[in-house]
Write a protein that binds this DNA or RNA. Structure first.
Lengths: 340, 340
DNA sequence: GCGCCGTGTGTCAACGTCAACATATTCGAT
DNA sequence: ATCGAATATGTTGACGTTGACACACGGCGC
């Protein structure tokens, strides 16, 4: 900065004023300074700026590595929104929920230069990690309901699961089986609870849910358990990947999708439409979740007020993996042939 | 820091020495200081540190938002490795390759506190953006071959494409069709070139490749064009998503995979094994790419030497979407029925 | 007994920026 | 002609940390 000031024949303060467009600067002077900045390739030093102002214009994100597609998209959206708002994003990956790992992430983040933190980790895993969230920094939680102490943003899991379950019931299926996500997952819990409630509201008995771990492999294993039971005609998988595994299991046993069994997923993976058969799924909007999380954090930062954030809605996308169940007459007529 | 010093009855400098474990500090004093830090919840201020030392202990990553699965994984690996090495990661998303967008990303990154930059953007898109990479900062490129000016790290695209093509030829297919990635993509280009060379090395004429854009949808469209030609018995798609689309197209027309047509992908999506049929693919290792990129950058940072980084190898994973072609006898015997 | 080295601690200045204040100039209103 | 407001620029100090240097003390070898 000093060099620029000398080059332009002004004081450092004037350079500062030009850079920040604050206060009065003569037009000619401004031009001279801008010229000098250009020539010398001057870039303001953010460290000094941060030191002076106490603001870093950076947001920290704590997130599991190897995260789900949805979380990756959320991160992406957070990055985009933060960038729009002139904030940088500092990413702190956490490899497991082991307590010291998560705690270590917080420590690193505290030392690093951030004005606030967005945590994209399942609530239960957070609980498990027994992390005390530092109080100096504003925090927003995603995918979590530790809502009493910090604002949180999330998809409306319950609504989505209801849409999926009702869709299958409306098609005429007597009941709907469920392949749920891992026990520790808050989202999985919400989807499972909502599925059960939806069935019960219709006076239908909910079968015992099978538990997966979000992976297609676990969906396949659940499908293997289900496929030998002829009574199973409709399966709601808690995410698209597990739905893929379920489909594979049934197909492998020669049971047709959706002829013999309807399968609905959850997530809205972009490729779900191109699977064979194209997968009926609940479309999430992680990009909205990410943007809302940033907005909520910035609101806390600026105003100090706790932003009230609504849950982000989902939509059912009906494709070809779900259909009305075969009547017993159908079944006799066409044992197991692929549809067009 | 001042408070801690007062609390412990020492000077600020001694506190600094304790924090950084540098220089001589008496055992009793150290303990007193550590105690005081604990009590007061002292955290060193990174801005001041950076200002003083000129080092930020942070790495910037420039990457397209909505990036491919592979790049997401690479980012993840970069984050993990950087974190291990005590570096924070600053993520700068770029929404399009429009010149000012990318240039803007650089500017933001220069202003922000980073010691070096890793760029995860296709080389051609970089070229197009006509970005001059700033010379003050060490830069490592991923997914690119602008190798003359900066070190670069990448998957061995050519080797992978060769594996896939040779696999199909070895199964007995007369030739191999190819659904390539977008024209602007360096990876796509390398995979296509290698596919062609492999065919020519075997004295086989390469059919005209079809061009997709990495999406399953585009793979489907390519598949629609191919499926009516009975001569097509083997397709190598430049990524798994397009392979999914290709499979759907053939299935939709009643042509069996792998009975009538073999399909091989590229990427090693974790769910590829659970597709129906499980997809033969070329397994990449983005986690290695990310780690190497960080290592190369840190080597530049510390030593100033240009790290020599090898290409990261791939492996062919043979699953059930590829098989020997039917002989004409087979074809007459079993027109189009699903395998187990 | 003298000087020297190793150890432990304090003082000072500087990193680059910007808020606060001080100063200088111009111009219109009285 | 004088004053005050608006405009334009300079000076100073402080943000929190740490490197350079200075100082103080005890033990060792000669």
């Amino acid at each position: 900065m000093e060099d620029v000031a000398r080059e332009a024949g002004v004081s450092g303060q004037t350079v500062s004023r030009v850079v920040n467009a604050r206060g009065y600067v003569g037009a000619a002077t401004r031009e001279r300074v801008e010229d000098a900045m250009q020539r010398l390739g001057y870039r303001p030093n953010s460290a000094a700026r941060a030191l002076r102002s106490g603001r870093f214009r950076a947001i920290g994100v704590i997130m599991f590595s190897f995260s789900s597609y949805g979380n990756q998209r959320t991160l992406d959206a957070i990055a985009v929104r933060a960038s729009q708002m002139g904030y940088a994003l500092t990413l702190i990956p956490v490899e497991s929920s082991a307590r010291d790992t998560v705690a270590g992430a917080f420590r690193r983040l505290e030392e690093h230069a951030v004005d606030g933190i967005i945590i994209v980790i399942e609530a239960h895993q957070l609980d498990e990690a027994e992390v005390e969230i530092p109080d100096g920094l504003p925090v927003v939680l995603v995918d979590s309901n530790r809502g009493t102490t910090h604002p949180f943003v999330d998809t409306d899991q319950a609504q989505g699961a209801r849409l999926a379950t009702e869709h299958l019931l409306d098609l005429g299926h007597e009941t709907v089986w469920h392949v749920s996500g891992p026990a520790k997952s808050y989202s999985a819990e919400r989807r499972r609870d909502s599925w059960r409630q939806t069935l019960e509201a219709r006076g239908v008995v909910a079968p015992e849910p099978l538990q997966g771990d979000w992976s297609a492999e676990s969906g396949y294993q659940a499908g293997v358990l289900l496929r030998d039971d002829d009574g199973v005609t409709a399966v709601f998988a808690a995410n698209d990947q597990m739905a893929i595994g379920v489909v594979r299991a049934f197909r492998e046993a020669g049971r047709d999708i959706p002829g013999d069994v309807s399968v609905v997923g959850f997530d809205g993976l972009p490729d779900a439409a191109q699977l064979w058969p194209p997968l009926t799924t609940v479309q999430q909007h992680p990009e909205k979740v990410g943007a809302l999380a940033v907005d909520a954090l910035l609101a806390e930062l600026d105003g100090g007020e706790r932003a009230q954030t609504p849950l982000v809605g989902t939509e059912l996308v009906v494709r070809q993996s779900s259909a009305a169940p075969r009547t017993s007459a159908d079944r006799a007529a066409a044992p197991a042939s692929p549809p067009v």
